[in-house]
Amino acid sequence: MEQLMSRYTPAQRSVIEAYWETVRFTRSTGKISDGIKRREMEYWAKYDPSLVIRALSIHIQKYPNIKENYTRGILRNLKGGASHAGDARNHVRHHGTAASGAGKRDSSAEEAFRRRLTGSSL
């Protein structure tokens, strides 16, 4: 995976780390496998590193409750020259009205993580 990371600066790598830290809470286990990370980073290799970092930052800031595959759409929109589509569209499906929980952050995993950080068992 180091080969996939070699194209990024140290500052960009810290954004990538923050991205994976954010996205991991979309899993009930709070973990993301190396295989998924590798698959996504191989996809990112099609794009300029600065564009990838911009997409990751948008995902972290605006869509922290949605799984990593959403970043692919952000990247495609950015590459197409459009301003981020989320600014102009109504994202009702991302505000709790989705038919299923697919792609949503697992709040119980996040709560468990927060309890572990604070040392609380409640």
Rank of each mutant, 00 (worst) to 15 (best):
T97L: 08
A88D: 12
D106H: 00
S120N: 10
I74E: 10
G73H: 11
A109E: 01
K67R: 05
V23M: 11
G86E: 15
D34F: 01
Y43K: 15
F25H: 10
E2F: 08
Y63G: 08
P10V: 03
N77P: 06
Y43I: 09
L56Y: 15
S120H: 03
V92D: 10
I53L: 05
S108Y: 05
R39F: 13
G80F: 13
K31V: 05
A82V: 09
E68D: 05
Y19H: 15
V92W: 09
R116P: 00
H95C: 11
R7K: 05
Y19V: 13
E68H: 11
K67V: 15
Y19C: 04
G80A: 06
E2S: 01
T22G: 08
L75E: 05
R39V: 02
A82N: 07
E110T: 00
A45E: 12
L51A: 13
R27Q: 01
N65A: 03
R115F: 02
E17R: 15
A88C: 09
T22S: 14
A99L: 08
R72W: 06
T22N: 04
I74M: 14
H94F: 07
G30D: 00
R115N: 07
R38W: 06
E68Q: 07
G81A: 04
W20R: 07
R93G: 05
P49T: 13
